[in-house]
Design a protein around this nucleic acid. Structure first.
Lengths: 224, 224
DNA sequence: TCTCTTTATTTTGCATACAAAATACGTTAT
DNA sequence: ATAACGTATTTTGTATGCAAAATAAAGAGA
């Protein structure tokens, strides 16, 4: 009787995860062509599992397959973001509404603590830490919806937004507004006011989207 | 100089489409195990393109891959529908809101015509034709959003709902309500009142969801 | 008769080999 | 020098073969 059998995941799954990492961390940059043979030697696998993994990533939108011409790391365009952000908005809103019914008191308490931590980072102008805790809050609320499908949808879209890699520098004004949104969010969550939380999140994410798109346009034309 | 070169799609793509059809039409029933060798002879291809196609379908959620144990046609459970329907609701709502800004007058006119046709089917109690035109309206509005990502999300979820294959028999009451919702929808669309259209669609789809889930529960316990 | 073990068969996972398409390169002609 | 053609090389697409895992089957012991 073996007690610790390590059932290692199929190769193509491992390869898929590895590719995801490489894309996420930018080693495989957007627009880059993927050479199968090259990747094979690099990952130490044959073409079959690599290709299977690539199909999977392609149908998730991370890769773009060009018939007889290989695959490139898909590029997240401004147009893509313009499409994605409104969707994120209503989906995260829905997650918030559901979370108000589904989350346990302890989980809400947890969000409250992270929220307070985030406020501290805001007051000390610790941008990076602020973003990290901010993201954590959104993730906890998404999880809190208790809706697996919704989580997956949001995560998939969220990954694309992150891959866009814009330099997010907020103005004092938009930052203050974001924080005030979050104050209202945690309040609505603690009162389990789903409708209100949904509205606040929708507004909040829409504003965030506007900021992002604004920043990106500036990057395209920074001299203006 | 060849003028009509038919660039036939890669095999694995063709296979993927064929599998999708087979699953959609129920030839490959939910829960059914897929034998690679069997499918290969049946489709006249080797295992490699078949397997690649299967990975792709799996990451779209149509198949479920069990390591070393093959693939089964994924089963859409009541829990899945319970998760999916609220998402459909807000996504279709968003599509409606966007459609009010994006659709051309001619397209709206087209929806109006189909709407009137649908009302005719309702009055003559032509259930099947009613559903068909109903679905067409929802699809046109989704398209009308001009948001490709949103369309894909909705279509993907919508496909799962359809695969659940419940017997949709509406009561006179819920049918009347659905029609009245549609009257309000076409009105809001023609007035390009995005906010109102969004609200109506959300309510409408939620109600449809309630009906569906109700019906399914009855099927599970029909004697009650 | 039932259960557990052992063996045989099927089925999946991976690697390799071959074919076809696309790209790169060099040559020739204008 | 440039453009166009043809060849060589690279790269992708598909098929097949072998190994490992899972399932089915058969047999031995209780």
């Amino acid at each position: 009787m073996e007690s610790s059998i390590i059932v290692r995941a199929p190769l193509h799954v491992q390869v898929g995860e590895r590719l995801r990492e490489l894309i996420d961390q930018g080693t495989l940059a957007a627009g880059m062509r993927l050479n199968e043979a090259e990747l094979c030697t690099q990952l130490g696998v044959s073409r079959t599992p690599l290709r299977e993994a690539m199909r999977a990533l392609a149908s998730e939108g991370l890769l773009e397959l060009q018939p007889n011409r290989g695959a490139i790391v898909s590029i997240v365009t401004v147009e893509d973001l313009t499409e994605i952000l409104p969707i994120m908005s209503v989906l995260e809103g829905l997650a918030g509404r559901l979370a108000c019914s589904c989350m346990g008191d302890d989980k809400i308490q947890e969000v409250r603590e992270i929220h307070d931590t985030m406020i501290g980072h805001y007051q000390r102008k610790e941008l990076s830490e602020y973003f990290q805790t901010n993201r954590l809050i959104h993730e906890l609320i998404t999880e809190g919806s208790g809706n697996q499908t919704l989580m997956e949808s949001i995560n998939s879209l969220s990954a694309k937004v992150r891959r866009a890699r814009f330099t997010t520098e907020m103005t004092d004004d938009s930052w203050a507004r974001a924080v005030s949104d979050h104050e209202e969010m945690i309040d609505a969550l603690e009162k389990r006011d789903g409708i209100r939380l949904e509205q606040v999140i929708i507004r909040h994410v829409e504003a965030k989207g506007t900021t992002i798109l604004g920043v990106i346009k500036n990057e395209y034309a920074p001299q203006s």
